[in-house]
Simulated scan of single mutants.
Amino acid sequence: MTVVNRIVTEDEADLRLDRWFRRHYPNLTQGALQKLCRTGQVRVDGGRVQTNMRLAPGQSVRIPPLPDISQPAPPPPPDPRLAREIEKMVIYRDDHLIVLDKPSGLATQGGPGITKHVDMMLEGLREEGGDRPRLVHRIDRDTSGILLIARTPGVAAKLAAAFRGRDIRKTYWAVVVGRPTPDSGIIDQPLAKIGAGGAALVIAASRDEEDAASAKSEYETLDSAGKKLSWLALSPLTGRTHQLRVHCETIGTPILGDPRYGGKAAHPEGFTDRLHLHARELDIPHPAGGRLTVTAALPQHMRETFKALGFTAGDTPAPKRVKGKGATR
């Protein structure tokens, strides 16, 4: 066992020293790290440090010989079948992030009764010697479309901050039963969750209810088949569970095939009984600067419905990254 010097990467900028060690040596306890710093065995650029020091790219961290327990076990090899399956979902990737087109019916994360989900498949996207990719956000199991994956913890933190700061534009396409009045607008309807886990139900709530959470969605009618069915573009301005599905229900136009909301009205005869909600486009600030816009093609069951109703979706644009500070729209 020898002394090792590791260079702080751009991805690790402003990370606390103890969190940096937790990332690289997850089995090293906080107490052990504090002792190593206190005795001068851990140093940054040759100087003594405390565990709460913020790191900068290019700095050199001196790592003394560590007990065997501090070395993380190598990750198990990914299931080849799941690795091939998730690879087929990739519609964009670069050194910082990956964008997937998740199929309807595949859960994003595990839970009661869920034996297969995207999170368990991410090992198949790990590059040799690299970090395990990680989820940045989630979409419902029955919703298809864009899912954003960070390649490193640092990128995940930046993208999560962008989501919290409302600097990300998400556009969904939906086929709904009926036609909204007016044809476009903002749905400002607080929501409340009843229950927990996979059985949780979200309902419209009064503003003065204790558990009510503010929820706003923008919508626009792109086409309609009379007053029976309509094609909407939806953009959630807040990020509540099942927000778009409940908001569409509250304005009297439930999403076609919704298994949880809308009741019988969401299941007219003659159409595939699957949720017609698709995460169509994502416009994000790229972690390396500029903005990235990625679009996912409609799933097969929605293409069939579009064809039956005479809706024309057009071509799916290729991913577009605009460097610098300007947005793509």
Rank of each mutant, 00 (worst) to 15 (best):
M1A: 15
V4R: 15
D14F: 08
R16L: 10
R19C: 00
F21C: 10
Y25T: 06
N27T: 03
T29L: 11
Q30L: 15
L36E: 09
T51H: 03
M53I: 13
A56K: 05
G58F: 09
Q59N: 07
Q59V: 05
P67Q: 11
D68I: 08
Q71L: 09
P72R: 02
P72A: 06
P74T: 09
K88A: 14
M89P: 03
L100W: 01
K102Y: 08
G105H: 06
A107M: 03
A107P: 07
G111Q: 01
K116S: 13
D119A: 13
M121I: 10
L122G: 12
L122Q: 02
L125H: 04
G129W: 03
G130W: 02
D131P: 08
R134W: 07
V136E: 01
D140M: 09
D142F: 00
S144N: 11
P153A: 12
L159T: 09
F163P: 06
R164N: 11
Y172C: 01
W173T: 00
V175S: 04
G178P: 10
G178Q: 07
T181R: 11
T181H: 11
P182Y: 01
Q189R: 14
I194R: 15
I194L: 14
A205F: 13
A205K: 04
R207E: 06
D211H: 05
A212P: 02
K216V: 05
E218F: 05
E218R: 15
E220L: 08
K227L: 02
K228V: 05
L229T: 00
L229W: 03
S230W: 05
L237D: 07
G252K: 10
T253A: 12
P254Q: 11
P254Y: 01
L256F: 00
R260F: 03
G262C: 02
G262N: 14
K264T: 14
A265Y: 02
R274N: 01
R274T: 09
H278Y: 07
A279S: 15
E281Q: 12
L282A: 08
I284N: 08
H286Q: 11
R291E: 10
A296G: 04
L298W: 01
H301A: 06
T316W: 11
P317C: 12
K320D: 11
G326A: 15
A327T: 09
